[in-house]
Design a protein around this nucleic acid. Structure first.
Lengths: 343, 343
DNA sequence: CAAAAAACTTTCCGCGCGGAAAGTTTTGAG
DNA sequence: CTCAAAACTTTCCGCGCGGAAAGTTTTTTG
């Protein structure tokens, strides 16, 4: 371990007895050199502890082996979880990950992508804000950087989209709820920024109509990312106004549902199925907290692992295809109904 | 906007009529050139849309103007929130932010720091895992990179620590609970990885003893980061075993408390103060969800903003001091008791 | 074992910028 | 208006690595 003054690849070439260009090849892809050479390099490597200068590398390389990850709101544990999964898969594949959050804000989203662009990433995994995104900017970004959109779609933008099948989500929840009790009312924000929310509302309508039932949509005010608060305050108001004609409430997402459950608790309404309960409540997304709400929340779960894996895989495909697919690829994952106590 | 072939600073010098070295100065610090020159550059800048190559810049610069942020578990909204705040303050100060999560794992923490080291950041804000951290590695990292430790301390490591005063936290909660009802039992994980947890337990003991009361500590099994689950499962067990001699439970942190509340709900125990309630429950941290638990959780709040701000400020001081303070600086923030319905 | 292929070495240049040195222009205080 | 200080320009070199070209060695194939 006499790591004296091995600062450059030249230095390391000298002490390891391998020529600099071969070392260069090795550091870009260890598989690209002969096994015997690789062994010699790796032996020297743990004697001298040298690491190539990342800036000098990326300055000249075409592919920087960096993957950008942009999520709309990192504080939401769902995105935290997704980011975590994706990051680890990138690392395993030998890429570095650069993580950015849009903080729910249009300008921040642009800033993140701008930072990312200057990093010249091999590819980007982007979950856009949705309605608040600067569509034109993002479209032009996707033109210059291989980008896969995930979780929330932006139609026509990017070479691929990987997300959940909102139809499957709502079908399952509505079907279950109507089969086991009164038909559900749909509880949501008036102006959701999330395209998934809009798709879910439309699918709720369609599903109800196809069942010959009257859709009832209860919309509450509120903007921003404090969904629990919005669900809580809007829930109190809706309950007090008796806005729900049936005893079953299907929330657009779990965070809203958790807020709504807090409102029910506040008003002394017992939530759950069976006698002795005033209301049934269900959500969508299987938020990590929904397992520990009171009562635990019946919801429809994403397969986060599969989604993350597929998104990463699509991006790697895209990178290998030189940044272009023939046509936009869309991968949707079905949902899994998760029964708990609330409905 | 004829941004044709302005790829290098040389190109931009030509079209802007400013010499390359002056441009170089400008991009490192706009204040370092004369106002009139700055105006000329900025005028040219929005005509030609040039941005210096970040890799070429950082290759030669001493300070990369990058701040590394490492948190133990990004999926925890508390850290998400802190990371968000810190990131924005760095951006305002003209630094880029590189965000990493240790994912609760020793190896990942080392990997994050290793990645960071190769980025040659101006400074690093690190919230270590705690008991699971490789103390020696982190200490040596702090030797080579200006580092401020925050939120959870690692004694003697890093040039500065910014966090919360756990004594103040526990003092306030214990004092309030004893004053308004039966004295609290302390509910926690058996082997907390978080140094804050350990400090809180010790302070609970001391505070109780100083009040002439017998401390009662209920420890539950479980490891990892699923605190709600641990609180829920351990809570069920403890309730069934009648492990709490008083009707008041003080949880080491809010996530544990949220799990415990779910256990209480499951067992049909009404939580809250006043008659008609079986149990009082309180937590620490003011987790974003604790406002919407059932019932809403009485807790002791961090001043996240101040903490983040102070951590960033300390780091900037440290960077300006050339990476060394005379002696280790410790900044602690007191807590703010936040009364809600649960106690 | 010979010939072809693969892997390696040597040499050279370039990437886009930082920074030093020396000379020139601009600024502002008296 | 004068002159020194401040700000700028010109010129040059270096950072650490990527990558091409041409030559040499090793491995593979029949």
């Amino acid at each position: 371990m006499d790591d004296k003054k091995i600062r450059t690849m030249e230095d390391f070439a000298e002490v390891s007895g391998i020529s600099r260009p071969t070392l260069s090849k090795y550091f870009q892809d260890p598989e690209s050199v002969r096994q015997s050479t690789r062994d010699r390099i790796e032996t020297a490597l743990d004697s001298y502890d040298y690491r190539p200068n990342i800036f000098a590398m990326n300055q000249n390389r075409k592919l920087t082996r960096t993957i950008g990850i942009v999520v709309p709101y990192l504080t939401d544990p769902v995105f935290g979880e997704i980011a975590r999964t994706i990051e680890q898969q990138c690392l395993i594949a030998g890429f570095r990950a650069a993580l950015f959050s849009s903080h729910g804000d249009r300008e921040s989203e642009i800033e993140a992508l701008e930072s990312l662009r200057s990093l010249r990433p091999s590819g980007v995994l982007l979950s856009p804000l949705g309605r608040f995104s600067d569509r034109d900017y993002i479209a032009s970004f996707c033109e210059s950087v291989p980008t896969v959109i995930f979780d929330r779609d932006m139609e026509g933008v990017g070479e691929a989209f990987v997300g959940s099948d909102n139809r499957s989500f709502v079908n399952q929840s509505v079907e279950y709820l109507t089969r086991t009790g009164e038909p559900p009312c749909f509880f949501e924000m008036k102006n959701p920024s999330n395209p998934n929310s809009i798709a879910r509302r439309e699918n709720y309508k369609k599903t109800m109509e196809s069942l010959g039932l009257e859709p009832v949509i209860v919309q509450v005010d509120g903007s921003g990312w404090e969904f629990e608060r919005i669900g809580y305050e809007g829930g109190l108001k809706a309950l007090d106004e008796r806005a729900f004609p049936t005893n079953t409430v299907l929330c657009s997402n779990d965070r809203l549902a958790i807020g709504f459950l807090a409102a029910c608790y506040e008003r002394g309404l017992r939530v759950g199925r069976g006698s002795g309960h005033a209301l049934r409540v269900a959500g969508h997304d299987d938020h990590p907290q929904s397992r520990f709400s009171c009562p635990s929340l019946t919801t429809v779960a994403h397969e986060y692992d599969k989604l993350s894996e597929a998104a990463v895989q699509q991006l790697f495909d895209l990178i290998e295809s030189g940044g272009r697919f023939g046509e936009r690829r869309v991968t949707l994952f079905p949902a899994r109904l998760t029964l708990r106590s609330s409905a």
